[in-house]
Design a protein around this nucleic acid. Sequence first.
DNA 1: TTCGCTTGCACAATCGATGGTGCAGAAACT
DNA 2: AGTTTCTGCACCATCGATTGTGCAAGCGAA
Lengths: 352, 352
Amino acid sequence: MDQRVKKKATIYDLSLLSGSSPSTVSAVLNGTWRKRRIKESTAQTILGLAELHQYTTNLQARGLRRSRSGLVGLMLPVHDNRYFSSMAQTFEGHVRSRGQCPVVVSASRDPEEERRTAETLISYSIDQLFIVGATDPDGVHEVCELAGLRHINIDLPGAKAHSVISDNYQGARMLTEAIIRHFGNDDPLRPDELFLFGGRNDHASRERIAAFHATKKALLGADPEDGVQSSGYSPDITLRAFEAFYQCRGKLPRALFINSSINMEGLLRFMAGRPAEMFSELVVGCYDYDPFGSFLPFPVIMVRQNVEAMITKAFELIDEPPTAPQTFLIAPELIQPRSALKGPLDTLKDIE
Amino acid sequence: MDQRVKKKATIYDLSLLSGSSPSTVSAVLNGTWRKRRIKESTAQTILGLAELHQYTTNLQARGLRRSRSGLVGLMLPVHDNRYFSSMAQTFEGHVRSRGQCPVVVSASRDPEEERRTAETLISYSIDQLFIVGATDPDGVHEVCELAGLRHINIDLPGAKAHSVISDNYQGARMLTEAIIRHFGNDDPLRPDELFLFGGRNDHASRERIAAFHATKKALLGADPEDGVQSSGYSPDITLRAFEAFYQCRGKLPRALFINSSINMEGLLRFMAGRPAEMFSELVVGCYDYDPFGSFLPFPVIMVRQNVEAMITKAFELIDEPPTAPQTFLIAPELIQPRSALKGPLDTLKDIE
DNA sequence: TTCGCTTGCACAATCGATGGTGCAGAAACT
DNA sequence: AGTTTCTGCACCATCGATTGTGCAAGCGAA
């Protein structure tokens, strides 16, 4: 009866089969049939046929007509990173629970690519866009605004749309303090023994660096000028920064504040091939949480940004009527070394 | 002139503005105008207007008409994992270089969810579907087949469509051998000191377990029955497996073969709160690569699956005319402890 | 019987782009 | 001059679903 690869059934097919008009079929299938005063029995007939013929709505057609698609976009800088991938995981859960379809794409921290990506998604009439860690949030905003697309910034703030970000200042303060206190009073850390690696000229880095400076000054009394080694969000640049530092001073600092797990990978690259003992006295604070990172052979104090809270807040905001752009801070959490925390995966059904 | 949030320009708008018919405008904008013998000058006029009015194609409309969308789907088990997220990263690069739009979604290793997700994507008329690590590849196949959607399995094979997977047997053989050889001849490993944790009844686990057994037998002469502790792909179940083991024997084995980085997180959870010294003699082999995992305080030998090669091969196959389903093995790579390898991110422009 | 209200549905326009077909006018050829 | 060929484009149906509107039949009340 059913041949292979037959065309998918449409409302017109069901219309013929049921003897009802396409509009009736449509109403029945999209749930608006009570409002349209369709008889219960008619609806049942059609639903039965739909089941029988495995009808599924052509969402492109619906999207075209309604000029929205049921797709909700998440634009990440990159996938390949625990912070962003847990963002994706959490986002998916939220979107699905709202009966929509998540679409996750990355834009490589390239302003041009960010705008192009937004434009593409808009061409598919996505309903909302969550912009994570964008290099140029306001550029993306422009694109969204023109298309009347609801959007919100996460992780890095923009001036023209609501933003939900980690409280970078407080987080970095906690982290710096924890690093310093880790040394105790026997052999306290000196100001010139704590360096920050990573980060660039974005809001998050600026806040973290400011907190780093302030906390060092407050707790250690001083803060040399050269305590910060910017190295972007690239493992390789960070590696080179470490190499340069090492070259220059013959050793690493006793303590490091590392701006993100991506920069932390730069440290790993520096470690590779060098003897483990070289790092046995090191104390590291990393502004990001990675379970494996937490168990390195030296103490790694980490900051976990509250992804769940950020996403939740973002969903609240994006549905609200627009008001003047505001930035909402979400408190991150300090994670002691050797901690294996639950993540978004743990809410999935455990499967043996 | 341009008001905010004005409707997007359509080919009909440009048609009026240019004095050409909508079909001419359409042809010019989608590049088929030479084939349709449109005069160069007409084309230029329209292109100019399009630029001026910031025309962008409504891809839902195009998709409806052409019954494909330009979207290419990647279905992952989960995002929050370096193996799968690097898959996503690599996939994106390939799709974009083909001028299409990547769509990455996860389906939680739930066969039901996998089919539903595929169906949703099909409703959007995606052009191709890459099915990664599916629990029920053939169930997804059924759905795709009915819709005439090109698809391919990656990481876990199906019987009804081409599959590109890691050579799990060889990888596990290499890994087991490396673990055993790591102990050298002074204090060689005994068969009852090497256990496998993780995995379930999927193709990859079965192959790895088979290779584990065979290699143990070949190199150590024997292989006790209880050497394998299945614990699915869940950190928590793996944690419980370690706890049970520890409870029962009072210690961990000297050496562990861990089936995936997700199971490895179960080991981390076991480690948390327990003294580091407990693990100082441990040697671990992990079938997955994670840069941070490679630098844990004990030797961790890892296997890196060749994501780039798998994706590349998958793209080759998916474009070919269909033949009888075949499974293609991609050789993975053994990674020595303390290795920080380059990943897909390194091909991005380094940004300071 | 007639008016008016409800019930239950059909009709048709519409979303925006595509592509097969047809046709007028110019150019080329006999 | 008459016929064929080419150019350059317009026309229109189409993809599948949605939704505002209209209207016949049925029913109760006056």
